[in-house]
Amino acid sequence: MGKFAIKLLLFAVIFLIFDKLFIIVAHFSAEAEANKRLEYLVNGEVNKDIIIIGSSSGSRDIIASQIEETTGLSTYNLCYPGSNVEFHEFIMRTLVKFNEPPEIAMLVVDDNTELLHNETTNFRKDRLYPLVKYPYIWRELSQRDERDKLFSHFLILNRLNKYNFDIRKKRFTPIDTIQDCGSMPISWKPEDMDFEYVSGERPYPVGEELPEKVEAYKKLIETCKTNNINLVVVFPPFYQTHSESFEKRIRQLSGDGVYYYLYNTENPVYRYKDNYFDESHLMQNAAIEFTGELITYLNDLIENEIKIDN
């Protein structure tokens, strides 16, 4: 038995040495990424006055560079298409951990689905895996039960995912090109894209909210308050009637000290189908219009309510 145990131990040692070679894969998979925003965050390179957080509607509908040029305040868009509120909370937490907290954070919420089960949004683990060379990132994955924390301490392989091994340089495709300011406006759409206007007030099902999402939302607000960040919850245009019951629920959850911006529901631009890529995202021209509206609101807010030290 002793001989067998020694053989097994020897194999384990050889495997542990072999495992350490994969630090190279972890390094190169970060290098190969085209979307560097999360890495900038972890490296403390996102020290901006205004930050935008949210899912695809935030990344498509709000153009950070336009805000920066008009207001003179440095602005960066950290919205990730397909991400949910748990991911937004993670982004906010990472932002304040490694960077100077912004003066203003805009959280773009998805009308009705923000706190509900939604097939199209999730915690974007795929954005974390390329950065597993950072202990902060693999610890986050471990906490989310993605990997055994104990084994990740001494096994590099246990931090990696199969997609880490694709170390070819990634490139943006037309649909996911990220501008220098972090925004992703869309200026084209396929001809066969079809969708219908959803009219009428839809009752918001509070009972169907996912507790983990509600918890993440509250935590995000708490992080902003703790770090003296002025949080603006933004309700962007969707090709549907704005849900007032959803807005009411968000206001109820947010508590005091949070600002809200609802798009101009009277503006005909948001009724015109051609100004939408699909039912939840504006085309670039309409995004410029919406960002313009938002700038007016921000200017007003800065003038009257928020004191920003330059």
Partner: peptide, 17 residues
Amino acid sequence: RWAVYCILITIIIVFNS
């Protein structure tokens, strides 16, 4: 044989996410 086992274990751990 050991090299093959190492590779197999590597693939298993990586895919096990």
